[in-house]
């Protein structure tokens, strides 16, 4: 399943986040308690799920971008979707990355071939997730600017 493929990778990155930037808002607890019998659930009250806490491991490095185009549809990333991007992550083989190409921000999957025993460097290619879009080999990986690594895709269902 192609969508699951992205999600699996994404979780791996999500787990590598270090800092929770913003504390979840404290929910009012006992203040709102009606008089009479105490709620049997009060000792089990937990803060509600906070999407920021789960999707934004570091508020200083997390950005949201909007996708335009169809090259990544095979990876479950459609035209008009929003992506959560972490600029602090180190891109690896298989990462969905935002690369800077000719002054534009472009989304592709990063492929790094196993290092050549001679030079020690592996060939780097930016790959679309749709057959209609050709692979983009990166002649000099030193010159490749990766703007950030996508961690989640917000797709309207």
């Amino acid at each position: 399943m192609k969508e699951g493929e992205v999600r699996g990778r994404v979780d791996e990155f999500g787990a590598s986040g270090t800092t929770v930037g913003r504390p979840a808002p404290a929910a009012a607890r006992t203040e709102l308690m009606p008089s009479g019998f105490a709620s049997p659930a009060q000792d089990w009250f937990e803060d509600r799920i906070d999407l920021n806490r789960h999707l934004v491991p570091d508020i200083t490095s997390t950005y949201i971008v909007r996708v335009s185009g169809h090259a990544m549809e095979g990876a479950g990333i459609s035209d008009g979707d929003e992506l959560i991007v972490d600029r602090a992550l180190r891109p690896r083989d298989g990462s969905v990355v935002i690369a800077v190409l000719d002054g534009e921000l472009v989304i592709r999957r990063l492929r790094v071939a196993s290092p050549d025993p001679g030079s020690g460097a592996g060939a780097v290619t930016l790959v679309a997730a749709s057959a209609a879009y050709p692979d983009m080999p990166v002649p000099d990986p030193e010159d490749l600017v990766i703007w950030g690594v996508a961690t989640r895709c917000l797709h309207r269902v």
Binding site: V65, V67, S68
Partner: peptide, 14 residues
Amino acid sequence: HYTTKWADLPVVKA
């Protein structure tokens, strides 16, 4: 307003 307004998000080309 790339980072403060939902309608203004940076666009990435796919």
